[in-house]
């Protein structure tokens, strides 16, 4: 699983550029603009899935046994996996279900799960991170221990365990979303905690305390605005990581179950068909790659646009004034 590289609160003490400058810096990166366009197209396809399949005149779950060669075990009849005017991308081996329809509906599941999971992760991470940083020593201890345990739980391992015992009444996409979110919040909480702790030592936060603001007013007025940049940067990179997580679970056969289509789940079957029906493999694999790549590029672009140090990294004698806070935090800082 490509766990997105962590960035801790390294940049939180320096102001990030304001909104307009941020957009300008983001748009100045041509590759990022291109990636954003590709990704927007993918989202559009996912949203318009019913429309597109209606246009094609197919249904993602309809079997077409006539279109596969039962003698060879179900290889689609026709060239390139049975591509035709009716079936724009051919059909699935064995079942003959329409590939285009499954791909566009699969986009809904893959992207939807990733997005919602990211939102939950960020909400949990920000809440728990602030709680750890501001709630006193015990709060910090508890959150840190829970984080340790959650981090030591290999995500796939615990997902396998949970899925095996979760009640069947919960729809699989919801369950997968919750699992991914529940096991992936601690990156955000680490960033928020480290950022809040270092911001807390700043004089303007002390001044706010002396002005008479309470802890949560300070969190809202002084900390959160400063934490927005690192959290957004990290969150944008969480989306591709969640896309991969869902695909991995589905690939292992414990994620999205047929007949609901998802790209990762399509890959599972494709594994055995790559010689006879290569399009069946290449379509979901390629789309996964493009999705993750475009999201990663957007994430990188956002990071660059928000990074106050972006332009001034390589001057002689630039002092590195951030002394390492702890072994792992500083390691992760370097990953930025």
């Amino acid at each position: 699983m490509s766990e997105a590289l962590l960035t801790t609160g390294a940049g939180v003490t320096t102001p990030a550029p304001g909104g307009r400058l941020f957009w300008r810096r983001l748009r100045a990166q041509r590759a990022v603009t291109a990636a954003a366009a590709v990704f927007a197209l993918l989202v559009l396809v996912a949203l318009a899935a019913p429309l597109l399949t209606a246009l094609e005149g197919q249904n993602p779950n309809a079997y077409h046994p006539a279109l596969v060669d039962s003698a060879s075990g179900g290889v689609p009849i026709g060239s390139f996996g049975g591509i035709s005017g009716e079936h724009w991308l051919g059909v699935e081996p064995q079942t003959g279900r329409d590939l285009f329809a499954r791909i566009v509906y699969g986009a809904r599941v893959s992207l939807g799960v990733a997005f919602v999971a990211t939102l939950i992760q960020v909400a949990l991470g920000v809440g728990l991170g602030l709680f750890a940083a501001l709630g006193g020593r015990w709060a910090d201890q508890i959150v840190s221990r829970v984080t340790d345990v959650a981090a030591a739980l290999p995500m796939l391992v615990i997902t396998l365990g949970l899925l095996a015992v979760a009640p069947a009444s919960i729809p699989r996409p919801v369950l997968i979303t919750l699992i991914i979110a529940g096991l992936g919040w601690f990156g955000t909480s680490k960033i928020v905690r480290a950022g809040a702790l270092s911001l807390k030592t700043l004089d303007h936060v002390s001044a706010a305390r002396l002005s008479g603001w309470g802890t949560w007013a300070i969190a809202r007025r002084e900390l959160l605005p400063a934490l927005a940049a690192p959290v957004i940067t990290y969150a944008v990179l969480l989306v591709p990581s969640n896309v991969v997580a869902e695909a991995a679970l589905s690939f292992l056969g414990v994620g999205i179950k047929p007949p609901t289509p998802s790209w990762g789940q399509m890959l599972t079957d494709a594994n055995t068909w790559y010689q006879a029906a290569p399009t069946y493999l290449l379509l979901p694999a390629g789309l996964l790659f493009i999705t993750v790549l475009s999201l990663t590029m957007i994430g990188e672009g956002v990071r660059t646009a928000l990074d106050p140090r972006a332009a001034s990294r390589l001057r002689v004698g630039t002092r590195n004034q951030n002394k390492p806070t702890g072994p792992i935090e500083s390691l992760e800082e370097k990953a930025s």
Partner: peptide
Amino acid sequence: TLAGTSTPVFVIGLLLIIVLCS
């Protein structure tokens, strides 16, 4: 490296099997 970090292991593994072994 950007492409590398973006590729799930099962995608790259499948492709490698197809190209190099098959």
